[in-house]
Design a protein around this nucleic acid. Structure first.
Lengths: 215, 215
DNA sequence: ACCGTAACGGACGCCCCCGTCCGCTTGGGT
DNA sequence: ACCCAAGCGGACGGGGGCGTCCGTTACGGT
């Protein structure tokens, strides 16, 4: 098995480049709708190519996943950047939570990829690192402004992401609606409020053996 | 394939009854730890019986699941009953949320069974019905007492349960800690508070007729 | 102690997924 | 127009889960 993804898509023959795109389109569609557990062959079928072609271009599922979710990863960064740019850090944080939840609600596969530390998908891992770091800073500012409860920890955000992943509806629109409601609830739980009793102790989730948080 | 579960375990021969118990023990252990996706053969292996014996006693996975989770279902009812018996409906509701979340955190398989409407597992379905109805009444009283926010909907509880299912940690203790933290957050989001902004619209998650809490 | 039968479990055939090989097709440079 | 290598996809062997059949074992009533 080749272990390095084809680094030069532009040197491919025209038909090969076409197929590569069709494969990525199929992968995006299937991963988004059904999650990452879709068989490779299903992707190939949908793309209208043979299994060998798929494996030639993307020797491992991880490579296909990484490539397929480049867009979402970019969008993810954009959301975080936008949130960080907001002069009101609390409003920025709320926006990030809402948008990220919606992003994950729309795209089942991305959630799995984002949370799973799919071994070897360094792009996704790096994207998550970036996101986490940026949000940490945002949270710090929101706390300083007195809008975010002081006993909030970053792991709570992971908690929320994982929880959001657990929400399933029959349709995408239902899913988004549910996620939106959920995000609304969570945000109000995060908001500093004198009436709030202290929370149970925070849970450590990030130090996990990094293999699979997704299932 | 036989379609009816052996209704007379007490008429079984002694060795068969033993095996039946060993199968159920194995199923409980595996389902709790790893969820319902454990292969039937794995259960058989763990129970120290052949696959045929397992299938003879439990022709379908649903039957095995239903039987294996009878305990948890009972505990579930007990929790709900205890919550309903509390003179303070809000405290009762909090207790139910906390305990149910913990129950589900300890037992992965039960969560799946409880939420999945595993086709044909009528016992579990009935248990869920009972739970939902009882909690609905509890929520109505908590709202009346002014402690539960007025825009709370029963589907929010399903939402929370599904969300709780999404939370995963590497160890059972970590899992329970995380769920506890999560339940704490959720409860504070549910509590009536003048500072709270209205939530996004509720999401319809159950196909069942909407139990009307509005009154 | 004996024997009929309930109960057992190894082995089978089926299906689906995986990753690879190899003979055929086709793009694109000359 | 020709050619050949890049590219293709059908087909293969391996592995694992599924549900069932049937020859063997051992319970328990007499």
């Amino acid at each position: 098995m080749r272990v390095v993804a084809d680094p030069f898509p532009h040197t491919l023959r025209s038909d090969a480049r076409d197929n590569r795109e069709r494969i990525l389109d199929a992968a995006r569609a299937l991963f988004s709708a059904d999650g990452l557990d879709v068989p490779m062959r299903e992707v190939a079928r949908r793309a209208g190519v043979g299994p060998a072609t798929l494996y030639r271009r993307f020797p491992t599922k991880q490579m296909l996943v990484a490539e397929a979710f480049a867009d979402q990863l970019h969008e993810c960064r954009a959301i975080v950047d936008e949130g960080c740019a907001d002069p009101d850090p609390w409003r920025g944080l709320c926006l990030v939570i809402e948008r990220i939840c919606e992003l994950h609600a729309r795209d089942r596969g991305f959630t799995q990829a984002f949370l799973s530390t799919y071994p070897g998908v360094k792009d996704v891992a790096a994207g998550r690192e970036y996101t986490v770091k940026a949000v940490a800073e945002l949270a710090r500012r929101a706390k300083e402004a007195g809008r975010l409860r002081s006993d909030f920890v970053l792991d709570d955000l992971i908690l929320v992401l994982m929880a959001n992943k657990g929400i399933h509806a029959t349709s995408t629109v239902g899913q988004v609606k549910a996620s939106r409601r959920f995000a609304g609830l969570v945000i109000q739980a995060f908001e500093a409020c004198p009436r709030h009793a202290p929370l149970p102790p925070p849970a450590r989730l990030t130090s996990a053996p990094a293999h699979d948080l997704s299932r």
